[in-house]
């Protein structure tokens, strides 16, 4: 029965090849299955998940106030030292008390691994992750950012 097995082998082999070709043939003729995303073209319609960890930002409200007290929890939580907080002492005009505040919130985007531990550690929710991802620049110095805006101050009531 050698001949019979031989022919059976060939038939089953051809059948398996034909099954594969039928499937690829289906995709060749059905262009609606195409899943390509044309990235730079679809920039306007691109929706990223709101939780996407793209970079650390510090939201400011309309009075140019933020919620950062300069406690350096985030700096301690950061595993790779991409946060450096430089603090200063503000003198309150009315009471004359000295109060700790941030001078510069330095964020090294070039060191950041987007782990989100700083956001998790922040007691006042002063920072959050923004869903941006187009970070490439020609000069690496541009990746070192100051997150608090000029002239901003701590929102009243945030301790």
């Amino acid at each position: 029965m050698f001949i019979k097995d031989y022919i059976k082998d060939i038939a089953s082999a051809l059948k398996s090849l034909a099954t594969g070709m039928k499937m690829t043939g289906y995709y060749f003729t059905h262009h609606k299955e195409i899943i390509t995303e044309q990235y730079p073209d679809n920039r306007d319609t691109l929706v990223l998940a709101e939780r996407f960890k793209g970079e650390v930002v510090m939201p400011h409200d309309e009075n140019n106030e933020h919620a950062c007290t300069g406690c350096t929890s985030c700096e301690l939580a950061c595993p790779n030292g991409s946060i450096k907080i430089i603090t200063k002492f503000d003198v309150d005009a009315e009471t004359g008390k000295r109060k700790k505040a941030i001078d510069t919130w330095v964020y090294h985007l070039d060191l950041c691994t987007m782990c989100g531990l700083c956001v998790e550690a922040c007691p006042t929710n002063a920072i959050k992750m923004a869903p941006t991802f187009e970070h490439s620049v020609f000069d690496r110095n541009k990746l070192v950012k100051k997150l608090n805006e000029d002239g901003s101050k701590v929102r009243a009531g945030v301790e």
Binding site: L48, R51, F52, M114, C115, M129
Partner: peptide
């Protein structure tokens, strides 16, 4: 990956688990 991105905020290296649970609730 889209599911991961939506809940964990990243597609490959998510860092979603913390000691004691997970970082955020499900989306």
């Amino acid at each position: 990956n889209v599911i991961m991105e939506e809940t964990c905020g990243a597609r490959l290296t998510m860092n979603y688990y913390v000691p004691g649970g997970v970082m955020w609730d499900l989306h």
